[in-house]
């Protein structure tokens, strides 16, 4: 039974990544579950049939290709958002000559995708990442208080803990919100420095234990191993420590936050070189383009030009997009 559940979860996530609306995702997963049940009733071993189905990611990709209308109609806003963001970036940048933090308007692309794709707590959780980062960068740029305002980012952990459910995690979420408030109060009002970071110790322990920092590797219906969870949770904590170190020691709060991009980058490298999954170059491009955009923009005060790095994403996509018609009947 575990195989069927693992397969369903992986397929659901893969369909989400391909931009299927929630209703369509659930229907497709239900159809595949029915087929697995029928196969096991007729003659086949459930696990053998699941093996024949192949990778959930490939299934989702194929469905996205075969049913383009269903995905595209739902996502006109998402498709338009990069152009709208670029126009807004140029207008605001040219008029005000403030390119940083105007570049935050590019967040409307992931924000609109999350808004279209998710509902309820999932939506809140997804939006919180971009809203909190944008809020942090905006506030910190104009106040200069990169520390202690980074504590606002910890609110993402609170939402994740709450979403995972359970009495202890929900209590942990409430504690985390209070800890953020307490941290900022102690720092701003009482001038207590450094040691009050210990307020976040219980949050950190609970977050690691709950797998909040986890990275999912849903390839061929396999589930993420305990070892992978530990390594990648550790990596997130390590990057947070590196960020704080860069900030406290060399005041590199911005663009030091770029170290967090190493987490998805390492995850992609792990998938490609350790798990042996073929990944197109375009998978890496958003992270590399963002890093180059910020580094070049910051170092040479040239955000008005460095946005060109983002063009590498669609260009690479076009260059590496293979016609895989022939694979369809394999």
């Amino acid at each position: 039974m575990k195989d069927k559940e693992t397969f369903s979860d992986s397929l659901r996530r893969a369909l989400e990544e391909e931009g299927f609306a929630k209703e369509a995702r659930e229907e497709i997963v239900e159809d595949y579950r029915e087929m697995i049940s029928e196969a096991s009733l007729s003659k086949e071993e459930e696990s053998a049939f699941i093996g024949e189905l192949g990778s959930p990611r490939e299934i989702a990709k194929k469905l996205a290709r075969e049913m383009p209308k269903q995905t595209k109609d739902d996502h006109k806003l998402v498709a338009l958002s990069p152009f709208l963001a670029l126009i807004a970036f140029f207008l605001i940048g040219t008029i005000s000559n403030v390119w940083h933090p105007t570049w935050l308007v590019f967040f409307i692309t992931p924000i609109s995708a999350i808004w279209t794709e998710t509902r309820g707590l999932d939506r809140l959780k997804g939006l919180s990442v971009f809203v909190l980062i944008a809020g942090y960068v905006l506030l910190a740029t104009y106040t200069g208080d990169w520390h202690p305002l980074w504590a606002l980012l910890v609110l993402m952990v609170a939402l994740n803990l709450y979403e995972r459910g359970g009495r202890i995690r929900k209590a942990g979420a409430l504690y985390t919100v209070a800890a953020v408030g307490g941290f900022l109060t102690l720092d701003y009002l009482l001038g207590i420095q450094f040691m009050h970071v210990l307020l976040f110790a219980p949050t950190l322990v609970l977050a690691v234990e709950s797998g909040v920092f986890g990275v999912r590797f849903d390839i061929e219906g396999r589930s993420t191993t305990r070892q992978e969870k530990v390594v990648f949770s550790g990596l997130v904590v390590l990057m947070a420590a590196v960020y704080l170190l860069l900030g406290f020691m060399w005041a590199l709060w911005h663009p030091g936050w770029l170290v967090f991009l190493l987490v998805p980058l390492f995850a992609l490298l792990y998938v490609q070189f350790i798990l042996g999954e073929k990944l197109p170059l375009v998978a890496y491009s958003p992270f590399i383009a963002t890093a180059l955009f910020v580094i070049v923009g910051h170092a040479f005060d040239a955000y008005n030009l460095s946005w060109l790095f983002f063009l590498a994403i669609p260009v690479l996509g076009i260059l590496t997009d293979k016609d895989d018609e022939e694979k369809e009947y394999s």
């Binding site: 024949e52 192949g54 194929k62």
Partner: peptide
């Protein structure tokens, strides 16, 4: 059902469920 169709077509035409279902 999709599975009925798979059983009927898998051998003679050599297609799998991931071809039948999207269609």
């Amino acid at each position: 059902t999709p599975f009925d169709l798979l059983e009927a077509l898998a051998e003679p035409i050599g297609v799998n469920v991931n071809t039948i279902y999207p269609l």
